Amino acid sequence: MRWNRTVSALLSMMVIVAVSGCAPESAGPQSLAERVVRGVPETWTGPPLDPLDGSPEVGWLSDAEFGVVTRGSSSCPPVAISLERTEEGDVRIEFADSPHDTCTADDGPTTHVLRLPDGVDERPVAVTLTFASGGTYSLSLP
Rank of each mutant, 00 (worst) to 15 (best):
M1L: 14
H100Y: 03
R123S: 11
D101G: 15
S140M: 08
C22L: 10
R35I: 12
F131S: 10
A18Q: 11
T130W: 01
T128L: 00
S55M: 11
C22D: 04
E65Q: 15
P142Q: 09
I93L: 02
D97P: 10
G46L: 07
F66P: 00
A27V: 09
D63C: 05
P77Q: 02
G72M: 13
E94S: 12
R123D: 09
L11Y: 12
E25V: 12
A27Y: 04
E88D: 14
P117T: 10
D97L: 11
A126D: 02
A9V: 12
A132G: 05
I81N: 09
L116P: 02
T104R: 07
P56R: 00
D63Q: 13
M14L: 15
G72I: 06
T102Y: 11
G135K: 00
T110W: 04
R5E: 04
S62T: 09
D106V: 08
P117C: 14
P47T: 07
W60D: 03
E57C: 13
A27T: 05
S20W: 15
P51K: 15
G67M: 00
L116S: 04
C103P: 04
P41A: 03
V19S: 07
S73C: 10
V17T: 03
R123H: 06
R38V: 12
V40P: 06
V7F: 13
W3G: 12
A126C: 11
I16C: 14
C76S: 14
T6C: 09
D107A: 11
Y137G: 05
G89D: 01
T43M: 06
C76E: 01
S82R: 08
E25L: 13
S12C: 09
T130G: 14
V36Y: 14
V58K: 02
D101H: 04
T6I: 15
T128G: 02
E87R: 04
L52R: 11
L129D: 00
G134S: 11
L129H: 01
L114Y: 08
P29S: 14
V120E: 13
A80C: 13
F131G: 12
L83D: 04
A33V: 03
L116Q: 07
A132S: 07
G59D: 01
V120I: 08
